[in-house]
Structures are given as C-alpha cells and as structure tokens.
Design a protein around this nucleic acid. Structure first.
Lengths: 157, 157
DNA sequence: TGACATTAAATGTTTTTACATTAAATTTGT
DNA sequence: ACAAATTTAATGTAAAAACATTTAATGTCA
C-alpha cells in the first residue's frame, strides 16, 4: 500500500520529509513482519540480532562491547539481552582471559540449530516479499548511505 | 559513515539484506537525532508525532482511533500518549457528541506554540543533514514503496 | 608505586511498549 | 425492542527500553 493511503496523509511538505516518513514506516513494516516470524520461537528481534552477531563470529567468542558495536540499536542493553539468551541456553558466558573485566560470549549448538531453522523461514520470507530487483536494492542502500552524509559545510559526524 | 564500517560487517549476503539492514540502521540514526532535538522539550518521539497529527487536523478534533490510524507505529498505546500530553497541557479531551464511546482530542494553543518552536529546529536540522537532492529523495521513497509491494504471485496484503 | 582516570559489565530505577482484559456505547440482526 | 456482536477507549500487567549508577579491572602517568 502506498504510504499516503496507509497513514491517511494526502501530501507531504517536501520530498525529503516524505522519504523520512517512508523510512520510519518501512522499518516498522519490516519489524512487524519479522517479529511475526520470530514469535513462535519465543525470540525477540533484538535477541535474534544478538544471536546472529554471535554466529557471525563463531567459533570465536565476542565480548559484550563487541556485540554492542555490531548492533544496529546501540542503546539497548546487551548485557540483559545476553542474560535472556543464557536462560534459553542459546549462549555461554566465559571470563575473558586477556581482560578480567570483560566477558566472552559464545553461541551454543542449540543457538546455532535455532538460527539454522530460522534461516529457512527468513529466506522464504525475503523471497516472497521483496519487490525490488538486485540493482534496485543496491540503489536503495546507496541512497540511504547518502542520506546520512552531512553536506560538506557542516561538521563531521 | 558507510554501514559496513559502522556495524563492523565486511559484507552482506545479498543486496536485499544489505538494503534491509540499512533501512533499520538509518531509521535508528534518524530517531536518535530527532530524540536529541526533542529531549530539551521533554517530549518523546511518539508524543511529538501525536502532536503533529493533532495539528494536522486542527481546529477539528480527532478521536483516539483517528490518531492510531495516522500513526506510523500502530501498536503504541495512543490512549496513554494522550494522557501524557494532557498532563503537559498540550491537548484537550472532550466527549465526542456523535458517539459517546469516542473521545475527541484537540491540540491546545500551548501545543501549537511548542510545535511552532520545534518546526524551526526541525527545518534547520533537515537542511543540515540531508545529503540527498530532491529527486533522489523521491527516488528513495519510490524504492521503499516498491520494496513493500508483494510480488504478483503472492497474495495481496 | 600509587593516585587518578578509564573501561567493561552488571545492576537499579523509571518510563515505555506490548499485549490482554474490561467497561461502556453503539450497531446488527431477528 | 432486545439479545448478541462489535466498537471505542481505558486499564492491568509483564516485558523491554532508556538512562543513571555501581563495581571491579585495567590503563596512565607523575
């Protein structure tokens, strides 16, 4: 559905604000769909993201700080997300040998198995939903990168 | 910053998943910036969005259902957001004359004044940040619309 | 070395979200 | 008209997010 219809807004004050609203709207749309896939597995989106980060480093461990650096939402509490995953036996905690302040986190076989199961659903879901061609998807990503670039006259991020 | 660097991921498995991650990342980026602007005014992003919806209908009232229909995030509790705005004297509640189940919500002058103040900041902020041309912004919005379209062989949304 | 600053993770607290339930008013169908 | 279903908004509750503080370990540097 076009965004104008779905949020009952006839027009936007500028192309930029329309794009911005569309990013927020599309993000919510994606998150809602993804949560529906995850719900039967009793995983939140954030827990799923953390698990995928851990798999990306498996069999190497990663510290909580390492997880935060790789999370899209840097604000959420990685320590408590790991707690939840620990209760579900999806991860292991180990004291980091180099730095006793830090804690190494590892994904368990149970976690890997769950992700493997979810990969299938995720793939089906992506194939069913994506209305973009490969090159359009790249173009979209480039435009988003460009959106986040400050113009030259303002200070660097 | 490019998304690969910022989330420390060297590559993505597909153009589509890269675009999807970039949408989520850009959405968080936008939300964080916007919250920084709102923080000194003690408004959350959701409260701000509700206020703007109310202004869009001013001087006509709008019911809670009407607000929900126009919100990007349909799940959040509009009734409680209105409560918060009521405490800040940004809105008024009135029994809806046609339907005594419904409640008419109106933005107050105080609310309008606050939004007017925020409009200036919002505009400055947009001008400073947008690295896209007008036509690129439209293109971005079109690509997002297209992303949300299911391919022809699957069922309608 | 020792004082001070910084870092990593956990914890406390408040607010917000997500989801279910409730209560009242309205609509529907007979 | 009346019972049943639906709609509208509010409320209850548990989980999660946001944000500050704490604790322990490490780094810095005179």
């Amino acid at each position: 559905m076009s965004i104008e219809k779905d949020i009952k807004q006839a027009s936007f004050k500028s192309a930029h604000s329309k794009a911005m609203v569309n990013i927020v709207y599309t993000n919510n749309w994606l998150a809602t769909l993804q949560m529906e896939v995850l719900k039967p597995y009793d995983l939140t989106l954030q827990q799923y993201n953390v698990l995928r980060i851990l798999r990306g480093h498996h069999p190497e461990p990663i510290t909580v700080i390492g997880i935060i650096e790789r999370m899209l939402d840097k604000m959420s509490n990685a320590s408590r997300l790991v707690d939840k995953l620990l209760l579900k036996e999806m991860v292991l905690r180990r004291e980091c040998p180099n730095d006793r302040r830090a804690v190494d986190i590892l994904i368990t076989q149970k976690g890997l198995d769950l992700l493997a199961e979810l990969d299938v659903l995720q793939k089906q879901w992506e194939q069913q939903l994506y209305g973009l061609t490969e090159s359009e998807a790249l173009q979209l990503s480039d435009l988003l990168d460009k959106l986040r670039q400050s113009p030259p006259e303002s200070e660097q991020q």
